[in-house]
Design a protein around this nucleic acid. Structure first.
Lengths: 200, 200
DNA sequence: GTCTATATTGTGATAGAC
DNA sequence: GTCTATCACAATATAGAC
């Protein structure tokens, strides 16, 4: 990764903020320039096109949590042993940037055809992961439940409360953001306990 | 709800399909007209503006699953008794239209400020729901865990696997949609069992 | 109700002065 | 590297003929 000028960093910061919030189509180059306090045409100078600026932001976002997932899916260690550390880092990432999950999910949903290529680039090997899951199921680490369902449960419990933050905040925490954050931090303990219970 | 002409129905159907897929900003009136096989300007004739057409689609989407949630949050019956039926209907709704969850979450995330008003319109009363949760916690239905965390777990397990369908399909089910659907149907049994285990 | 024509504005992108 | 001016095009929306 090359060194970035200050201007370039400002652009990326604003682009991240706005793309996360409004998505690719919902954000104009003008919006980003204004937010960064930088002339619109400089965005083209640095990133050539909106597409390429977006790609930079998207890849950075994916890079924030895909490696955690990949490590779990590919390592020699069992899923179970990975859970506490994974939950901790994922939740911390989400607390820092609650909109990242919905951003990534939305863009992946709009471009389903690109999924296999993206996974490859991110270093995830589905075939290998499936084999690992199959082996773990055989040695009954998962208490008889399909390993894929176990993984799905784990990830769902970690990420959904952030993807649905606006609703959760309003209905369950009455708009109190502090209370919401406290609850999310509590989940770092709750989720591993819960998974342990399921796997026994 | 007034009677709709055939043309109006076609427009709504195409608008739903495209808004779900590409979001509000990512879909043009032209796209919708083309998909419906209808002249672009007729969309304005029937719905006046893109904003109003979008509102119609959004409200219809919310109406598909908010009532289920509202019923659980407001009824006299305990959450626990509601679980199997809720899981069944939510999962069925999601299977029929996998992109609805990400669509709703994305739009709510883009317009967080509108949340309280939307909840009101949808007939959800956060204060009432919270009171009910507090009572249930007191009578220890939730095995000591905060009721809000229980609700959060339940909803996460139901919805996330659909919001993340592209990733889940690719990594866990190797692109096999049939296998994915079968797994989602299995969750109708898995989730209630799991919740029961948690609440005991 | 449905079409064509048109007004108006917004957007991505580049050329060229400094 | 940064700005102004400009281009080509796409978007929403409306007026008005039929």
């Amino acid at each position: 990764m090359a060194l970035q000028t200050e201007t370039e960093e400002k652009i990326i910061a604003s682009a991240e903020k706005l793309f996360y919030q409004k998505g690719k189509a919902g954000t104009s180059m003008q919006d980003i320039g204004d937010d960064a306090g930088i002339n619109r045409t400089l965005l083209n100078y640095y990133f050539r096109s909106k597409d390429q600026l977006f790609e930079a932001v998207f890849r950075k976002a994916m890079g924030r949590f895909v490696p955690n997932l990949a490590a779990m899916l590919h390592s020699d260690i069992s899923f179970e042993e990975y859970i506490p550390a994974l939950v901790e880092t994922v939740i911390d990432t989400m607390i820092e940037n609650p909109q990242i999950s919905i951003f990534v999910l939305q863009e992946l949903s709009s471009n389903q055809d690109r999924m296999p290529q993206i996974m490859k680039e991110m270093g995830i090997n589905p075939a290998f992961a499936l084999k690992k899951m199959e082996e773990e199921r055989v040695i009954k680490v998962t208490g008889g439940m399909d390993s894929r369902q176990v993984i799905l449960n784990l990830i769902s419990l970690c990420i959904f409360p952030f993807a649905a933050k606006p609703v959760v905040l309003d209905i369950l925490y009455n708009g109190d953001n502090e209370a919401y954050i406290v609850a999310m931090k509590e989940r770092k303990k709750i989720i591993p306990q819960l998974m342990k219970q399921l796997l026994s």
